[in-house]
Design a protein around this nucleic acid. Sequence first.
DNA 1: GCGACAG
DNA 2: ATCTTGTCGC
Length: 309
Amino acid sequence: MSRSRSISDDVDLTSLVLSAVAEVPRGMVCTFGDIAEALGDPRAARAVGEVLATVQGQGLNGHRVVYSDGRAPDAEALRVEGLHVVDGRVEGLDEVRFHGFEVRPVLRDLQREQEELRLQVVEKDGMTDHKKVTGVDIAYLGEEAVAAAVTMEAGSGKVLEEVVEWGRVRFPYVPGYLAYRELPMVRKAVRCGSGHVHLIDGHGRLHPRCFGVACHIGVSLGIPTVGAAKSMLIGHVMEGGGDIMVDGEVRGRMVGSGGKPTYVSVGHRVSLDTACHLVKRLILRAGPPEPLRMAHILATEERRRRSRA
DNA sequence: GCGACAG
DNA sequence: ATCTTGTCGC
């Protein structure tokens, strides 16, 4: 059972955001998008804001990061540094905008890694133990996270094993890079040597680079995985059978009628048909398939217990 | 300006 | 994902 690791497994994006922000000199500013771009992907702009919002006021240069229209979260702090701020907006933004970031564009590297690893995805059914199914989910409490893995007997629905693992997460949620946030925690909770299917709370091949978190977990841990997400990231659902198309190609399928559909896509070593049959069979009540529902409850309950301790 | 953005 | 009160519905 391969448990391959790569250098990108434990990227501390939170620290990289802060070091990028620290590069902005006194008297200058940049936008949330500028930081994101410096880190390699403008789609991380919201994550930059999230990081700054949670660590504000620790001697950083967070006040030097503004919105793209010049609005400043902390206008007074910028005025002190000699900037012209009118109505909460930085005047002549482009003249005082910092461009010389030297931080590593780590998201570009991760993107390249996804493009390489996607070649290892196996989209066909293989030698799989269909007697068991595991659902994996994670709950968060600030930088702390708890991963839960619930293994059920496929036929009876009997719970065979429950695993809970705590850890620290230093990679904010960025659309398209969920695996880099969750993989370190999943590694802790998923036991090795299991050849049965693992249901993952997120997409597999239904991803901009065809390598969502379900694929990443499957390839990294060498286990069969299925992506089972609650909402879409990319693609369009076809009127008829619920096939989800991207670039004229079937990349996933909407399963479970009603208001709470599950968007299924191949993770690793399972065909889309088999994945959909499995998920359909495991949806007992409306909503997520049973193992995922139970993993979610377990993780959420575990978090609640810690937050009250 | 509007829509989109897994968890 | 998390923040959060009462409330509408089967």
